[in-house]
Design a protein around this nucleic acid. Structure first.
Length: 314
DNA sequence: ATGGTTTTTACTGCGTC
DNA sequence: GACGCGGTAAAAACCAT
């Protein structure tokens, strides 16, 4: 655990979870409150947004005629052309602004629901702005792109969350089933924008999930379990047993295996639930890992069981 | 679309408490 | 009997092509 002095947040170094926010956020309230509670106006951009155009925007007609239907003089035509242009500009700026505010609000909401750090939140915001600037929104929902931005931000900031972890907090996802249209949009969108923005998305290292999954199970000697599990994963990596498999499954198998090695009574169901996997998958992964472990010499097994966390490069 | 791989679902028997 | 575990087959989901 480490204290980020600049942000005044306690952040778990291994998983990026914000343990405690020691300070109240005194920044502008980044929400636009609805029109009917006028007392809730806050500082910053939301005011201009809510005041500027309450759905009562006007458009300048394209016919170059005055109110009486007469055609305009050429100088008047040019003037109206300029006005049209600027009116249009203000309106599109305004709609972009509204879009952004909506999205950033959602990012913020999801981030605090998941306990993500300020850094991740900011990264997600930057990603979303880039999507907006590069016109990646058409055909996709704001919430979908916002969720995808946050998912990518987590991976960029080296504290990945699985896709499933976003299901309960994202408003595009309605339920848990894989067939959920929101789920499909989510996965499609994150791939699309990471590609369009040219973001490098390295495969997630299973070790990254260990600490959080173990914490969900909350066994007796969780540090030892996590440590051994990480060792097992690096062993599996040397044997190329992890390619093609989902990182969360590898993590789950390693955790269960570590529980057996340390004579801890963790059940397969507990691990499966913590890792959002099935018991069968936990079994299959753990058998492979256990195979490797069994072939080790006693001395090597000792090393794995006793070496401190600092010896593990994760 | 297709084929190969992984994951899930559902069901089974076995041993233990 | 309930529970954890192991195995299996078929379906579903996933991924690269």
């Amino acid at each position: 655990m480490a204290l980020d002095h600049r942000k005044k947040e306690y952040i778990c170094k291994s998983c990026g979870l914000v343990i405690d926010k020691g300070r109240i956020d005194r920044g502008p309230d980044w929400r636009s409150f609805s029109e009917d509670d006028g007392s809730q106006k806050r500082v910053g951009s939301p005011v201009t947004n809510t005041r500027h155009d309450k759905g009562l925007s006007t458009q300048i007609g394209w016919q170059n005629r005055d109110a009486n239907g007469n055609t305009l003089s050429s100088t008047q035509k040019r003037k109206m052309g300029r006005l049209r242009k600027w009116d249009n500009r203000f309106q599109t700026e305004d709609s972009k602004d509204r879009n952004l505010k909506n999205a950033l609000g959602e990012i913020s909401r999801m981030a605090s629901a998941l306990g993500l750090s300020e850094q991740i939140r900011e990264t997600a915001s930057v990603i979303y702005r880039q999507c907006l600037d590069q016109n990646l929104l058409p055909g996709r929902s704001i919430e979908g792109v916002a969720t995808a931005s946050l998912y990518i931000a987590c991976r960029q900031c080296n504290s990945p969350r699985s896709l499933e972890e976003f299901y309960p907090v994202s408003r595009i996802v309605d339920g848990e089933s894989p067939g959920d249209p929101g789920v499909k949009e989510f996965t499609r969108t994150y791939k699309y924008i990471s590609k369009e923005l040219g973001l490098k998305m390295e495969p997630v290292k299973p070790e990254k999930y260990i600490n959080r999954f173990v914490n969900r199970i909350d066994p007796e000697n969780k540090e030892d379990i996590a440590n051994v599990a990480k060792h097992l994963i690096s062993l599996a990596r040397e044997e190329n047993l992890h390619s093609g498999k989902s990182p969360t499954s590898i993590a789950a198998g390693a955790i269960y295996s570590a529980g057996l090695i340390l004579d801890n009574n963790i059940t397969q169901r507990e691990v499966a639930d913590a890792a959002n996997a099935s018991q069968v998958t936990v079994r299959n992964r753990y058998k492979e890992v256990a195979q490797i472990y069994d072939n080790l010499s006693e001395a090597e097994k000792k090393i794995i069981k006793t070496s401190p966390p600092s010896a593990v490069d994760i």
